[in-house]
């Protein structure tokens, strides 16, 4: 594999170079100084050294709220919402687990009738990964996404002494580098990052552990502290559920059919006509989320539908940890 050195002070120049090739997106500081995936207007605003973002990059392909179509109650017309152009888009500063999260949703969104919004927004992207220093919650290697994992990435900026070693992973990625003269010789490598959180079972054992844990008391125990606030699923890179609603303009003639992210963790998610709620108990919702990550979809996807980013753990006001739940179940199954 080809590698090129890039000194830290040259990184903004490199991003500027990419901005001449296409629209660049990446982790940029938002109003609260937190990195958030958004379009880059100024290379110096890109944060390449970050722990994680609150919302995963899926927000670029399935926005938190979007218009599906515009309608008119006056002349009974429907106009599908436009998804921005087909030009080249470059996502820089992607952690390798987030690339896997996007791959998970590429799979799921294409099953059955394909999600048109997702498909349209996913066209023409190049992914430029970057290495990261895990905090106490990341457990990606436990779901098969170790520091050397490069799946789904076209270029990778591996943090090295004094900068990055840029790895050329695909033709598409390599072609983006044409015309950039800011390279150095490959830089001295830094030690592989240490992970502080992990799953005890092998990834392939996770569905089997859940298969015999449906009635386990752990779901009741976790439910005692769960707020059913939905934060875990809202920040999850592989969750995709949404709610559809109409928004009328005050002229009472024009309006929009919209959707926004929804969460299986809130009670009204499963409320149907007549007021029946079929996952009424908090414990059944807590369990459902974890089965969605390690069993239901895993059974046909062939690998965990969790990428070990730890976002749900960081976002949980009740300190519920998906890795701790799985480890407790594994210990009890083994004991």
């Amino acid at each position: 594999m080809k590698r090129r050195g890039l000194l830290s002070q040259k990184a903004p120049l490199f991003i500027r170079h990419l901005m001449n090739k296409g629209q660049v997106y990446g982790p940029v500081k938002n109003k609260t100084q937190m990195p958030e995936f958004a379009q880059v207007d100024e290379p110096s605003r890109v944060v390449l050294d970050y722990t994680t973002t609150v919302l995963p990059p899926k927000r670029l392909f399935q926005p938190p709220e979007e218009t599906i179509y515009h309608f008119s109650r006056k002349d009974f017309t429907v106009e599908p919402a436009k998804v921005s152009g087909d030009g080249l888009k470059i996502l820089v500063g992607l952690h390798n687990y987030d690339a896997e999260g996007i791959a998970c949703l590429d799979y799921q969104m294409a099953r059955g009738p394909a999600d048109e919004g997702w498909a349209a927004r996913r066209r023409n992207w190049v992914f430029v990964g970057v290495s990261y220093e895990p905090d106490q919650h990341h457990f990606s290697p436990s779901v098969g996404i170790g520091p050397d994992h490069r799946n789904g990435l076209d270029l990778f900026m591996d943090k090295a002494d004094g900068g990055y070693n840029v790895e050329l992973l695909t033709e598409r990625g390599a072609s983006l580098l044409d015309g950039f003269g800011g390279w150095s010789a490959p830089l001295p490598e830094t030690p592989a990052p240490k992970f502080h959180n992990r799953l005890l079972p092998m990834p392939s054992d996770l569905p089997h552990i859940l298969a015999r844990s449906y009635e386990h008391p752990i779901w009741q125990q976790e439910a005692k502290r769960c707020f059913s606030c939905g934060s875990c699923t809202m920040v999850c890179p592989t969750c995709y559920c949404f709610d559809v609603f109409d928004e009328l303009q005050l002229d009472m003639e024009s309006g929009e059919k919209k959707r926004h992210w929804d969460s299986c963790q809130v009670a009204p998610f499963t409320e149907v006509a007549g007021g029946e709620i079929f996952r009424k108990e908090t414990s059944s919702r807590v369990r459902h989320r974890i089965y969605r990550k390690f069993k239901y979809i895993t059974d046909h996807y062939g690998r965990p539908f969790c990428i070990g980013c730890g976002r749900c753990i960081r976002a949980c006001p009740a300190k519920i940890s998906i890795s701790e739940v799985m480890n407790n179940l594994a210990r009890k199954a083994a004991g």
Partner: peptide, 8 residues
């Protein structure tokens, strides 16, 4: 929280 997370 749902609306808070929609805002990121």
């Amino acid at each position: 929280c749902i609306e808070c997370k929609l805002q990121g």
